[in-house]
Design a protein around this nucleic acid. Structure first.
Lengths: 123, 123
DNA sequence: AACGTATTTAAGTGACTGCTTAAATATACG
DNA sequence: CGTATATTTAAGCAGTCACTTAAATACGTT
């Protein structure tokens, strides 16, 4: 890879320890990154917020509330469902989506940040 | 937009309430989505994890630990810094990056998920 | 069966990502 | 000053994203 930099004043011990540490959490990070990537889209985050608040909604409702076409919403829902973040329940011709219970561990702390209005990352 | 669907069995009251609710948290969601989007990248999440654990690191160290070129690392750091998630401190010719204190509110709950190995979203 | 509603799937497209390599900038040191 | 180290910036590019429109699927009603 690179030839310069890398190792002059470096703490070799620290580096090697970090490599091990990272390896241990690699799977967890990979999984978490996927979830955060999905939640890191404004439309999808709104959808998750709404599903959390209302407990269940159909694509049609979300389309109306968010002012987006139904196919656009449907495609977002598919991604969330494929990742296991939401699940669906069909009733007649309408499909109700809701937060998957198994994803609460990840989503709860995130959704809590919204309500708390605590989102003061910067400036 | 669409002409079909939208309103037949819909709970008009709920929809309109949701529109208001979303509007209230719009700014918070927008900000949070940006942060999650950044953290939702495997490389960057690892970087944040390492910065959190080691309190500070230089691009060179991160490059070594993560097995990536220095420019690639530098570009990720720039994004994190532009978003206010990390900050930098120059000492001689090396630049130490660390988690911005102001971003702890968002990052702490996320980073905690890694250590807890609780990341069991799915299956 | 035929039509209307609810939703998904598919194909196309412009914008954005994340990497690469090469060059630029900045600081330290002989 | 010239060279080595540390980092950023820039340009290029393949891959992905999020939307659009159009078509397909599915259920309900008459």
């Amino acid at each position: 890879m690179t030839k310069s930099c890398i190792r002059v004043y470096a703490d070799v011990e620290q580096i090697s320890q970090c490599k091990q540490d990272i390896e241990k959490v690699d799977a967890a990070i990979s999984k978490l990154a996927k979830a955060l990537d999905l939640a890191g889209n404004e439309v999808r985050l709104k959808m998750l917020f709404l599903l959390d608040k209302e407990s269940k909604m159909c694509p049609c409702d979300l389309s109306d509330i968010l002012g987006m076409t139904v196919p656009a919403i449907s495609q977002h829902l598919k991604k969330l469902k494929d990742a296991g973040l939401v699940e669906s329940n069909k009733v007649g011709q309408t499909i109700f989506y809701s937060i998957a219970k198994s994803s609460n561990l990840i989503l709860n702390p995130i959704l809590k940040l919204i309500e708390n209005e605590k989102v003061t990352t910067h400036e």
